[in-house]
Design a protein around this nucleic acid. Sequence first.
RNA 1: GGAGAUGUGGCUGAGUGGUCGAAAGCGCCUGAUUGCUAAUUAGGUGUACGGGUCAAACUGUACCGCAGGUUCGAAUCCUGUCGUCUCCGCCA
Length: 426
Amino acid sequence: MLDRKFIFENIDAVKENCANRNLNIKLDSFVELETSRRAKLQESEELNQKANAASKQIGKASDDAERESLKEEARKLREQKGAAQEEHDKLAEQVLAIQKLVPNMAHPDAPIGKDDKANLKISDGKTPPRKFDFEVMDHLELGQHHDWIDFEGGARTTGAGFYFLKGELVLLDLALQQFAVNELVARGFTPTMTPDLARNSVLEGIGFNPRGPETQIYSIEESDISLIGTAEITLGGLYSGETVSDEELPIKLCGISHCYRTEAGAAGRASRGLYRVHQFTKIEMFAFTLPEESDKVHEELRQIECDLFDAIEVPYRVVDTATGDLGGPAYRKYDLEAWMPGRGDAGEYGEVTSTSNCTDYQSRRLNIRYKKKDVKGTNFVHTLNGTAFALSRALISILENHQNADKSVTVPEALRPYMGGREKIG
RNA sequence: GGAGAUGUGGCUGAGUGGUCGAAAGCGCCUGAUUGCUAAUUAGGUGUACGGGUCAAACUGUACCGCAGGUUCGAAUCCUGUCGUCUCCGCCA
């Protein structure tokens, strides 16, 4: 969330940002409520001060009569303080409710527009889309042909939208994971396997809402934990409440986890096969940085995503996400959209990765700070996340782009060392 | 899952309901001193949110895992919760 004081002092900029993001939030009442809250806080603190002073006298009182009268005075002051405090807390609650709704400010260079149509393409990958001299299959047809993907079995055992991965496709999946992890370790990331469940408070800190009709989150009954939708949740939670030294920054983690999403309300979206599923594996990048370094690290994450998809020879484009299409916590977001020749009528781009700079929006809620040596006080770190590979979609991009006329699939060279040197599957 | 113990500042570790934001030691910072690679010594050393100031000084409130409660007053008493440790059980 944004800083209360920042919103208060920059109300016009915040309003403009909400408008750019196509959000309607009642910010006028925020200013009123916050003004009264501050007044009440001061009132309550002053009364408390008087009460504290009176209480201190009681211990020093010389006789019982004096003690009793002091007690009475202190009791009255506490009562008044309690009343003021209660009013303050009510106001604070209302302020916080609005504060939580306010999205992060957007990067000044982020394209302004109300939805994804305003996203700005900024570059293409190294691999150009291929010209096929045979009729392409989509990943699901290929997968079913080779008995690599079994949605029927998934539905039978678990439910619609679940699947089994089998045979050589599993080997390809594992190769992708190992390749990505090795690349990230070489770039200074700490490989981190996280829990697949997290406390609801952590989900909320990252910006997910675990309950409610529109939630994307599976929650565990009679508990306050939920299945994670991304390792971003657990990796951010890992440092919640911590104050790190500036010398430790940047902290770069490579998360390996399963991701669970209900995909409520997603019916009807272009989502055949593995594109939109309830469970998938993801190799995730996460970074904690100094505020002045987050833009730089964001570019680095974007470059890594490009390098990975260049390495597996998949055509893609990079888009700078428009303000209206940014998630609440994101200050700026880049998506990689891979060319999926089997998608739609004649191939379509589909999102395969996403990297966001969330500045201090998440760290404020999670209370993750850094301290500079020899400087008084602490500040909030910046958090960033980016997908290395969401395995389900990475597999789609490989199957569809590297398919051959005989229905086999060529293994990208970069992955062969992780597949015993094998050049083809199927 | 059962039984018990425990949670204090960067660390170790005291703390009878009032004088405790908290002893002491270690660490760290600053100064002094001794010529020897360190010792001795004096002082300082938390965070957040306010007020104040050009900036400081100064000052208010809160914080002893977290959340409540009792009380004029809570690190100290009570309840809940989370974490840690030990023993038993079970188990990959």
